[in-house]
Design a protein around this nucleic acid. Structure first.
Lengths: 161, 161
DNA sequence: CTATAAAAGGATAACCATGTCCTATTGACG
DNA sequence: CGTCAATAGGACATGGTTATCCTTTTATAG
């Protein structure tokens, strides 16, 4: 995996938030994690960080919750990763050779460069809106698979009788 | 960075070993780390793992040391990474959506696929022989830089007199 | 004003990666 | 056979990540 567990929670949490709310409506943590495998208390800490980083807004008290601080299509994976892990350090030599960078490259460094560039592009262009959309597609897909499985199960039972 | 510190040490250690020995000669740890920033004791543990994984052979006692278990061009980055971290789990959804793989993809999964494929190719095709070669190129390059810097320094001193 | 409901934040525990040191084992050499 | 020199392996320290729980703060509703 390319993300830490914490970053992954941040990504999934934001994707859920974007996918389940419309036009800047807020959502409580308890509702957000319902039906997911996201750990409520830990995600609370992660969301605190995202609030401080300016990706989320929060409201305390009755009727409170979290809202995206910007439109979903204006929050990139890069924004999320950097909010959690700090500046992305993909520029180091892939192989860990000392003092390798674009000014003092080694052959491995240059070989890895196109991969690194692609990854950077992916992080910079993929937004929370994309993730929410992917999440919905995925959920629809899973539903179809489940239904098919149930049909199969029913046939099995019917066949036995 | 895409590798853990431990994996990076493994990679650098093997690259040093390959670069400093010829035709299957063995080398002691103390010699291998001399002139590098590799941590001797920790690398010893890492090499133990590489021995068990079958990438290295070791010999105890007087005249002992480590040898590559196979020719350097037959040990890939993938071999090293998997020896340390276990099977590579690049196949998971980049964004951590549950149950995502090639059979149950989500849009993000497919978007990430070409990047993942490139990375896999890089890991599978880059060998310890390549790394050793890169290391030598890099060292030669550093030497030139140092020499130029010394020349500059000398001129500075001369200019002041 | 009070009760309630939400996030914020502090304390702490468990775990893993990293790092260090000491002893055990093994093999070569005299 | 005994000594020495190398890796193997055990024990332990440290620090960061992940996780959980409890208290505090803040806002709303009645």
């Amino acid at each position: 995996m390319i993300f830490t567990t914490t970053t992954e929670y941040a990504i999934r949490g934001l994707a859920e938030l974007a996918g389940r709310t419309t036009d800047g409506r807020s959502m409580m943590l308890d509702d957000l994690v319902a039906g997911t495998t996201l750990p409520r208390d830990f995600l609370a800490k992660v969301f605190q960080r995202l609030v401080k980083a300016g990706l989320l807004k929060s409201a305390k008290g009755r009727g409170g919750g979290f809202t995206l601080a910007r439109p979903a299509h204006e929050i990139t994976l890069k924004d999320i990763v950097e909010s959690i892990d700090g500046p992305i350090h993909l520029d180091r030599c892939a192989v860990g050779l000392d003092k390798c960078n674009d000014h003092q490259p080694c052959p491995q460094h240059d070989l890895y460069k196109p991969i690194r560039q692609r990854l950077k592009d992916y992080l910079a262009t993929t937004t929370v809106a994309d993730l929410a959309s992917s999440l919905k597609t995925k959920q629809a897909w899973m539903k179809i698979v489940e239904t098919r499985q149930e049909e199969k199960d029913n046939q099995m039972v019917a066949g036995r009788q």
